[in-house]
């Protein structure tokens, strides 16, 4: 298996099947086009998007549906096209695509998730895009645990 040196994991072995390919990279990181999706069972539902080009860059994410069970994924025509998906309807998270919200955990203040712009992965091809919504239905700083919890 290929190996990459990272700040968070040290030497990280990753399977080719865990590599997500962006074209271009997420806004602000246009040249970061390859990430390994790293799952650690003890840290679920948090997953990591480790850049394969930059040892320091590692995003934390969680499935949007886990954060908000009724999260409604809406991708633009361009983003559907970019992932090679059917452009006449929205894809089904969990079956056709993986829909991950990037997490922000500042030193002080609540953990937030970017539900305005989830990272969507075509499960068949592993092509990925940060699908920035054109509407304002969800926040880019959705506070975790703000709602009722049990």
């Amino acid at each position: 298996m290929p190996l990459v040196h990272t700040r968070r994991f040290g030497a990280l072995e990753y399977a080719d099947s865990s590599v997500l390919t962006f074209s271009p990279g997420p806004p602000g990181f246009a040249d970061q086009t390859r990430f390994a999706l790293v799952e650690r069972p003890d840290l679920a539902p948090v997953v990591f998007l480790q850049s394969l080009y930059s040892a320091e860059l590692c995003f934390l994410a969680a499935p949007a549906k886990v954060l908000l069970p009724d999260y409604d994924l809406t991708m633009t025509f361009e983003d559907l096209e970019r992932l090679g998906l059917n452009t006449s309807r929205q894809p089904t998270p969990g079956r056709e695509v993986l829909c991950l919200a990037l997490l922000c955990a500042p030193e002080s203040g609540p953990v937030t998730a970017n539900l305005l712009a989830p990272v969507v992965v075509n499960l068949e091809t592993r092509a990925a895009v940060q699908a920035v919504r054109a509407d304002t239905r969800y926040s880019h700083r959705h506070a975790i645990g703000a709602g009722p919890s049990c």
């Binding site: 700040r7 997420p26 806004p27 602000g28 990181f29 320091e56 860059l57 590692c58 995003f59 934390l60 990037l102 997490l103 922000c104 955990a105 500042p106 970017n114 305005l116 712009a117 940060q130 920035v132 919504r133 054109a134 304002t136 880019h140 700083r141």
Partner: peptide, 19 residues
């Protein structure tokens, strides 16, 4: 750029801070 992309860009820069 579209505002939502600008907002996402700022948010990504913050999310990339090491934890």
């Amino acid at each position: 750029m579209r505002k939502e992309i600008h907002v996402t860009r700022q948010q990504n820069l913050e999310a990339a801070q090491e934890i």
